[in-house]
Design a protein around this nucleic acid. Sequence first.
RNA 1: CGGGACGUAGCCUAGCGGCUAAGGCGCCAGCUUUGGGAGCUGGAUAUCGGGAGUUCGAAUCUCCCCGUCCCGACCA
Length: 498
Amino acid sequence: MAEKITPRSVDYSQWYIDIVLNAKLADYSPVKGCMVIRPRGYAIWERLRDELDRRFKETGHQNAYFPMFIPMSFLKKEAEHIEGFSPELAVVTHAGGEELEEPLVVRPTSETIIWSKYRDWIQSWRDLPLLYNQWANVVRWEKRTRLFLRTTEFLWQEGHTAHETKEQAVQETETMLEVYRAFAEEYLCLPVIAGRKSEAEKFAGAVATYSIEAMMQDKKALQAGTSHFLGQNFAKAFDVQFQTREGGLDHVWATSWGVSTRLVGAIIMTHSDDKGLVLPPSLAQEEIVVVPIFKSDNKATVLEYAGKVVAALKADGRRVAFDDDDSSSPGWKFAEWEMRGVPIRVEAGPKDAASGNVVMVRRDTGEKTFVKVEEAAAKAREILAAMQKDLLEKARAFRDANTRDVASLDDIRAFYGKEKKAKKQSEVDGESHEGTAEAAGGYARGLWCGGRECEAALKAELKVTIRNMPFDQQADCEGSCCLCGAPAKHRAIFAKSY
RNA sequence: CGGGACGUAGCCUAGCGGCUAAGGCGCCAGCUUUGGGAGCUGGAUAUCGGGAGUUCGAAUCUCCCCGUCCCGACCA
């Protein structure tokens, strides 16, 4: 059979699409830019969602649900907000066979409808803080879509909190970004950089936006989560005031924060290879697949043996698939389960049954281990734990190897200019051989003055933008802006991004 | 939203104005097989993306629309 997955070295975009479609994570819908999330894809989202939800509850948040239809007038109450979102709104003008008096916007985000209710619910400082989250779908009419990464409709969570003081709201913004950072690294094996967004990149209506940024295998950055300090902007727009401890009146301070199904795309693009999906064990629908290898004359023996292995693994708490289908060959099954990203494959055949072993194969490294059957459960646990750790470290090493300190615009040009040469070279060669490692680019780290102009100029010239200003790298920012030479204020990460 | 490419069975592809739209993969049945995508025999599956037009005749030519991919613009 023909190779199903386009190698990364040939066409990174096509590789990504091939994985999503062939691993049956998602499919296209009849409506442009929308996607159907299939069970294997949704399972990843479910696991991710459940763990994140647990972490939200642990930090004192509650879930609620607000409607998807928002009166158009609500969005107009916050000037920057409507300006930022209006190009991508879907609007309902007719319902029940009649034209509506006021058009309804299908939510692109829920700040406005939520704040319209917070106005009713918040009277006193005793009502604060209000720490709500909702899991929902949102719609943004995107011009250019990509499965999971940018779709017209997507699933996400949006936290919306209200606080008594500015300090508390800022604290909440930072706390939630830290929840995202820890979650991304521990659970998704995505090494991320937590930092503050530039003015140009911040959320429409926010005072400050923070993000976690991940690097994909093509060295482009992907914003994996955001947390916004909204100041009193929405409280003022929706007139949400409360009585302070001192008896005065003040507008409440707000935050919002979210991650979306885009994370599924980030996971795919960070860990997977040319054989298919690679998943962190934490997210895998099945941690282990057991493939019995039998002939017709030993089928019963082998199946019984393999069945015992399955039982032992399940008894140890593992999520196990048992592929005892007799119509496809072992080789087929191996390839198929690798495509699906199952972390461990256990092979159990007649030779193993005779020797009391099984073969354990690790998805990310391909490493084969012969294990005594009574040690299989312990060994599986060990491999899964190692894989969870190694995937993060491998991604971190890749990122660090593709991060460079820059001091001038020429440094940046050289950093990304190489990529152009590499592309031209590969065009000459007809095909490139090395995979993504050959392309230049990645994160450029340098001092920045904070000015909008030099950031915009950089974007215009190289399509490189400021991803964020890492929290842990703001000490010692003396020097000049690597873009314009003015006195620097921050240290920023520059990169091409999704 | 502009430029380009593409759309033929579940998937990939041939056919590019003329007879009943062809092949591979997959699928179904049976036999045989199974340690890295097996084999044989038989079988089913196509409003040729949709619509309109040109023509004696359209998968094939023209126009419009829809969708996917790539480039650009845009993008909390």
